[in-house]
């Protein structure tokens, strides 16, 4: 919340809304409204909150790739598919809908392919992945001697936004199943602007529809539905804010543990039924410009360092966010 009040500070004090700025605002909105990423500008996983009436447009680009993957627990390569690349454009809109509650809506656009040359000659896939809606609620914010404690919770739901085929791994755009998650977040921030955050989530995943009506998953399966395993997701973060909160830096560990599922079969493609675990570290940076109110940029890099039935993926992303208060803008107009 401190961060949020600082935002107000910039908007209201340093850069009071002027008519000349409205055009710039509109231009930026038009640019940003089309696109976004699960970057961490303000996401269901962090502790950043927006004030009621604020709206934030985020547009991110992510590039991920892998040429090694864990087949069960064995790290291996498959030279026939070369390096598998995944590019994501992620538009997100966040709203400060109620006091202490933010709503996020986003739908990533994903494209996948193997690098050339490759012997598999598989066509990549491209399209909108899953439409996600989530809500983050700040349950507690308590000033303490030397710092501040925050407790937050977020819930979310996502479902495929196109008819992409989940059973086309490793090129499929997503898992193809509806998901529901519930996350708890704790953050402690010291007065010296250093903070630690940890969060844990349970993800309930439904069934992915396939285009065949028989498959093998620890035995014969007579169905065109695949059970996508539920999972636990964990995050541990050490972060620092500087320059009056304009800059935020984080070192992040992320882990996922599926609660069921089968292994990738020998030299065979992964399936939505796989038990996917991974451990990943990453770095994240966010910066809000002081001379263009509400404009922020982010950049991050993640590396999966251990896994089960997962790609050893490195991914890098950049994004731009623009935040303003809808009511105030209306008022000025």
């Amino acid at each position: 919340m401190i961060h949020r009040f600082k935002m107000f500070h910039w908007i209201d004090v340093l850069f009071p809304m002027e008519t000349s700025n409205v055009l710039l605002h509109r231009l930026l909105i038009v640019l940003l409204v089309f696109v976004m990423h699960a970057g961490n500008a303000q996401t269901p996983t962090d502790a950043e909150m927006m004030p009621t009436g604020d709206i934030c447009f985020f547009l991110g680009y992510d590039y991920g790739s892998f040429d090694e993957y864990w087949e069960g627990s064995k790290l291996r390569t498959n030279a026939t598919i070369a390096t598998v690349e995944r590019k994501t454009i992620m538009p997100v809109i966040a709203f400060g809908i109620f006091k202490n509650a933010n709503l996020y809506v986003g739908v990533p656009h994903v494209s996948t392919r193997s690098t050339e040359p490759n012997g598999g000659k598989f066509a990549g896939a491209e399209g909108f992945q899953d439409l996600g809606v989530s809500l983050k609620y700040q349950a507690l914010r308590k000033k303490m001697s030397g710092g501040e404690l925050m407790l937050l919770t977020s819930i979310g739901y996502s479902t495929p936004a196109s008819n992409y085929l989940a059973d086309y791994m490793p090129y499929s755009l997503g898992l193809g199943a509806p998901e529901f998650f519930l996350r708890g977040i704790i953050q402690h921030k010291w007065n010296n602007n250093l903070y630690v955050r940890t969060s844990a989530a349970h993800i309930w995943r439904g069934y992915a529809e396939t285009e065949r009506d028989y498959y093998y998953s620890n035995g014969a399966r007579y169905s065109n539905y695949m059970d996508v395993p539920n999972a636990w997701s964990f995050e541990g973060v050490i972060g620092f804010k500087a320059f009056e909160n304009a800059l935020r830096l984080e070192l992040i560990y992320t882990g996922q543990r599926s609660t069921s599922g089968d292994d990738i079969r020998a030299y065979y493609a992964p399936k939505p039924t796989n038990k996917v675990n991974f451990d990943r570290w990453g770095v994240f940076a966010q910066y809000y410009f002081k001379n263009i109110e509400g404009l922020g940029v982010i950049a991050y890099h993640n590396r999966v360092f251990d896994g089960l039935n997962a790609g050893k993926i490195n991914n890098t992303g950049v994004g731009v966010s623009y935040q303003f208060n809808f009511k105030k803008t209306s008022h000025v107009q």
């Binding site: 109620f98 819930i155 509806p178 007579y222 169905s223 059970d227």
Partner: peptide, 26 residues
Amino acid sequence: NNKLLVFSIFTMILLVMSCEKDIPHY
């Protein structure tokens, strides 16, 4: 709105849960 939201969330949870079914082996 909050009540509506809570209700919607519970409905979603129920929908997710009720989808659970066994996939036949034969």
